[in-house]
Design a protein around this nucleic acid. Structure first.
Length: 235
DNA sequence: CCAGACGTTGTT
DNA sequence: GTCTGG
DNA sequence: CCAGACGTTGTT
DNA sequence: GTCTGG
C-alpha cells in the first residue's frame, strides 16, 4: 500500500511535459501523511482543463454527510476501482497524478514496523503515482477536494517489504491517464506493478514514523544498532 | 418496497 | 447518489 | 501509514 | 483495544 511519501526537488520537467506554468515556490516535503494537502496534476472536467491543485489525502465520497464520517480511504485497489461506489465516479471522471520523490512502506514483524523508502533507481527524480480525486459539497456550500492513491500488487522489489504498492505511471503515459477521453479498459492497463528495475529500496530510521517529523532525516539510512557503540563511550 | 452500506490495511 | 440486502 | 489520545464539570 | 490527528 502507500501511506506516506516524499516530494522534493524541482518538478519543472513535469510542468513542461504538461504545458503548465510552475508556481514560483515549492517546499520540499519528506513526510507527507494522510489528511495533509498533497500536490496533484488533474483533469478538471468542469473547467475542461488540465491543471494542478492541492487535494486532501483521504478520499471523501460525495454522499457522506460529514467528511469525518469516513477517514481511511487513502488508497483504492486498482482491481475493484470500477465497482466500488465510493470510487467508480472518481475513476471515471476525476483521475490525478501525485508526483512523489519516493514512498515509504513499513515491514511488519510482530509488534514492530520497520520503515523502508522506495525511490527511482535511475536517480532521474520523481515518480508519478496514480490517483483519483473527488469533490465533496457541504450543506452550507463548503467544498472539499480530496484524493486516494491507487494500489496494485507489489513488484519484486517492494514484495520484500509489503504486498501492495502504489500504481506508478510512466511519464509518456501521464497524458493518457489524465485524458478524459481514454477508455476505462485502457486506463486499467496503465495500472500495473512497476517493472522490477524501476525502484531502489533503503531501510530508513524510525524518525519518519511520526508524521510530525519532517526534513531530510526522514530518508536517512537506519543507523545500525550493534553491541559495540564506541562513539557513545569515547565522546 | 425501504434500510443501510458505500473503503483499505493488517491481524486474528 | 447508487447499489445491495432483506 | 504511525502516533497519541482515550473525560467531565464549571469557571475564567 | 479503538478512534482521531497528522
Amino acid at each position: 500500500m502507500c501511506g506516506r511519501f516524499a516530494l522534493t526537488g524541482s518538478l519543472n520537467w513535469l510542468f513542461r511535459l504538461l504545458f503548465l506554468e510552475p508556481p514560483p515556490v515549492f517546499a520540499d516535503r519528506y513526510n507527507i501523511a494522510p489528511t495533509q494537502p498533497v500536490f496533484a496534476f488533474l483533469y478538471d472536467i468542469d473547467r475542461n482543463c488540465l491543471r494542478y491543485d492541492f487535494l486532501s489525502w483521504g478520499l471523501v465520497p460525495p454522499f457522506v454527510k460529514d467528511p469525518g464520517e469516513i477517514s481511511t480511504l487513502i488508497n483504492a485497489r486498482a482491481e475493484t476501482l470500477r465497482e466500488k461506489p465510493a470510487f467508480k465516479n472518481a475513476f471515471r471522471y476525476r483521475r490525478c497524478i501525485l508526483p512523489a520523490s519516493g514512498f515509504y512502506e513499513w515491514k511488519r514483524a510482530g509488534a514492530t514496523a520497520e520503515p523502508f523508502y522506495f525511490s527511482a533507481a535511475a536517480d532521474a527524480g520523481q515518480l508519478c503515482l496514480a490517483g483519483i480525486w473527488e469533490i465533496w459539497h457541504g450543506e452550507g456550500g463548503e467544498q472539499m477536494n480530496s484524493c486516494a492513491i491507487i494500489t496494485v500488487p507489489a513488484n519484486r522489489t517492494v514484495q520484500k517489504v509489503h504486498h501492495r504498492m502504489p500504481a506508478i505511471i510512466a511519464p509518456d503515459q501521464i497524458a493518457a491517464w489524465l485524458n478524459p477521453e481514454t477508455a476505462p479498459v485502457d486506463l486499467l492497463r496503465l495500472l500495473r506493478p512497476a517493472s522490477d528495475n524501476l525502484l531502489t529500496c533503503i531501510r530508513v530510521g524510525s524518525y519518519v514514523n511520526s508524521p510530525r517529523n519532517e526534513g531530510p532525516e526522514c530518508v536517512s539510512p537506519e543507523v545500525p544498532k550493534g553491541p559495540f557503540q564506541p562513539d557513545l563511550f569515547f565522546e
